[in-house]
């Protein structure tokens, strides 16, 4: 067991964790931050996506003990007080979810993805990897492919993200 301080959504959480614990289990089972979801626990579905130092990662493959000096953002930290994040509002407006279980991961992933695109990162569908990518629908689809949605809301997810990206 390890004593540590976690910084999540701007708040500090002192925790005593089992070295085996993933960030996902610490959030859900220890801190009652149940927004991040466990869909597969193997990095294969994306439902557990959170941001660590602003980058999207899979919290089910991240050991909590590695995070003592990192800044963690979960879906609970996206809104600005009572004002939803533009992506949250767009997801509702475009009906970009059904069961909602993949949604927190989709949202955190989209926040990270938009930052990556803004930084000029290419993707595998970028025609010329040397050029500045244009975040069209094909680019959004590829970049969001680490987040599975079994209800099949992809069309609406891409529309919602596309609206915010513009």
């Amino acid at each position: 067991m390890t004593d540590m301080l976690l910084s999540i959504n701007g708040d500090e959480y002192p925790v005593v964790v089992d070295t085996r614990e993933t960030l996902l289990d610490t959030l859900r089972e220890r801190l009652d931050l149940t927004g991040a979801k466990k869909g597969c626990d193997h990095g294969q579905c994306g439902a557990c996506t959170v941001l660590v130092d602003g980058r999207r990662v899979k919290s089910c493959l991240t050991l909590t003990v590695t995070l003592d000096d990192r800044e963690i953002t979960t879906v609970e930290g996206l809104a600005d007080g009572d004002r939803p994040h533009p992506l949250q509002a767009a997801f509702i407006a475009h009906d970009a979810f059904q069961c909602g279980y993949c949604t927190p991961g989709q949202l955190c992933s989209a926040v990270g993805m938009l930052a990556e695109a803004a930084a000029g990162w290419p993707s595998v569908v970028t025609e010329d990897v040397c050029a500045e990518p244009v975040l069209d629908e094909e680019e959004i689809r590829e970049r969001m492919s680490g987040n599975l949605c079994r209800c099949g809301a992809y069309v609406n997810i891409v529309a919602a993200i596309g609206e915010v990206a513009r």
Partner: peptide, 10 residues
């Protein structure tokens, strides 16, 4: 229940 689902409160 949209707001609950997008904020992780659901």
């Amino acid at each position: 229940e949209g707001m609950e689902k997008v904020t992780g409160r659901a």
